[in-house]
Design a protein around this nucleic acid. Sequence first.
DNA 1: CCCTTATTGCAAATGCTTCCCAATAACAAT
DNA 2: ATTGTTATTGGGAAGCATTTGCAATAAGGG
Lengths: 136, 136
Amino acid sequence: MATETIGQRMTAQRRLLLDIIRSANDHIDADGLYRQAKERDPRISLSTVYRNLSLLKDVGLIAERRLGEGHHHYEINVAPHHHHLVCVECGVVFEFESHFTEKMKAAVEEASQYVITNIEVNMQGHCRDCLEKSSQ
Amino acid sequence: MATETIGQRMTAQRRLLLDIIRSANDHIDADGLYRQAKERDPRISLSTVYRNLSLLKDVGLIAERRLGEGHHHYEINVAPHHHHLVCVECGVVFEFESHFTEKMKAAVEEASQYVITNIEVNMQGHCRDCLEKSSQ
DNA sequence: CCCTTATTGCAAATGCTTCCCAATAACAAT
DNA sequence: ATTGTTATTGGGAAGCATTTGCAATAAGGG
């Protein structure tokens, strides 16, 4: 008795999914991940994709974003903190960070008496390309 | 011919829904709205709730927020702009505004070359009450 | 090489939201 | 008032992203 394993086995599927997420240079969603994974392992299941996304998220390896409506996007957790500006026309995402968030956090913590654990800034707008297209 | 009405009839249901949203002092969700509406008009349909939420949103009378996971919350559009800090334990929402957002907008517009139309700041944390409860 | 137990695949279930369509009701013009 | 036009409704079915149940599989410590 007592084979205390508290989680995390490195399965082929998990390795595959992590690999795809790592090499994806933009934010990927569950369906895109599923499709790419199926190319390399046709028997992989959509449940496995969701289960692993959720696990990787819990562990802190990836971050979950809701950039638009309907579904989530995921990205590897590397940059300590950054935010998103999405073009409402074409969906292109501009990432940024700002020292203003720290100041804002301090001010809001003071005002609210909360202990703030997370800040997320989402902006929408029109990117240069779309602006040019519509002005012609 | 030519009875050009391009929309918006004031129906009893629409009046009722608006009334409930107005008198709700916190962010309400579709289901809560539906339940409250049914108390006053048992025949009202959930479709009607969703249709009117979407219409009121398009018209700009209410704002749609995704404060947590899963579903949306709605609130009357009055305060020009404010943001949200949600307690992850009990869900209580603290609203705030900050002049830092304007500065951040300017900086990000400059860096990205986008035209920014909307900014949303979502924070999570622990509220005073929950902190006290868990420290006892 | 076993044995335990995390993990998988598949299918069915969920939760929120949207869509379809025939019946109803608003409101402008008669 | 009455009509005609058309937005709106109720109800149920469909849709989409995600979760869950369960028997079969496989990881990795002993």
